[in-house]
């Protein structure tokens, strides 16, 4: 639901600006749209590949399997496994949090879930080729590596704060 509202808002903003732009200058608007189309066309092949990889991955790593990997394991190994699973998977928002809720109900600890959610969002192994294309290899790998390490820290901190904030 929240997603629809936000998507709607972005569409509304884009349309309003497009109209204003069109009124101010047709030529510039045309140029903007051509640029938009070209940059979309430019990234489309890679995007299609990434989307297919996500599909293949989720066919193997479905919520039940993720639950099996993370579910019962606790402690540092559990946190590490959760972080790795979170890094290699790319779940759409709704699926991500329903998976996390499933993990919670199956008895996984908050630290493991936090590690999973955190790396899911910040670390993207699947989208790495795209990040490399827009930035470069060093920047993409460094950003993901630093995010991975800090995500584990965040997970423990969340566990710690939840422990004292009763």
């Amino acid at each position: 639901m929240g997603n629809y509202i936000f998507n709607g808002t972005i569409y509304l903003i884009a349309i309003v600006f497009l109209i204003i732009s069109f009124i101010k200058s047709r030529q510039k608007t045309k140029k903007a749209l051509i640029k938009a189309w070209n940059s979309f066309k430019n990234i489309l092949p890679m995007l299609l590949g990434i989307i297919t990889v996500i599909g293949l991955m989720l066919a193997i790593l479905d919520p039940e399997i993720i639950k099996k990997i993370i579910g019962e394991k606790s402690g540092a190994l559990g946190v590490l496994l959760s972080s790795i699973v979170g890094s290699v998977t790319l779940l759409p928002g709704v699926v991500a949090f329903s998976t996390a809720a499933l993990l919670l109900s199956s008895g996984a600890g908050y630290i493991q879930i936090a590690a999973f959610v955190q790396t899911l969002m910040m670390v993207g192994i699947v989208t790495l080729p795209m990040e490399i294309k827009y930035f470069n290899k060093k920047i993409a790998i460094l950003r993901n590596a630093i995010s991975f390490i800090l995500s584990i820290g965040v997970a423990y901190l969340i566990g710690f704060i939840l422990g004292i904030w009763k």
């Binding site: 998507n7 749209l33 938009a36 989307i51 996500i54």
Partner: peptide
Amino acid sequence: KATNVIIYSFKEMLLVLPPIFILIGLLDV
């Protein structure tokens, strides 16, 4: 199952990307 996810992600992509790229184009110009 993979095909279902791919179709879902593809739809998500088609839903999300157009306004973003339009705004990028407008910002550039």
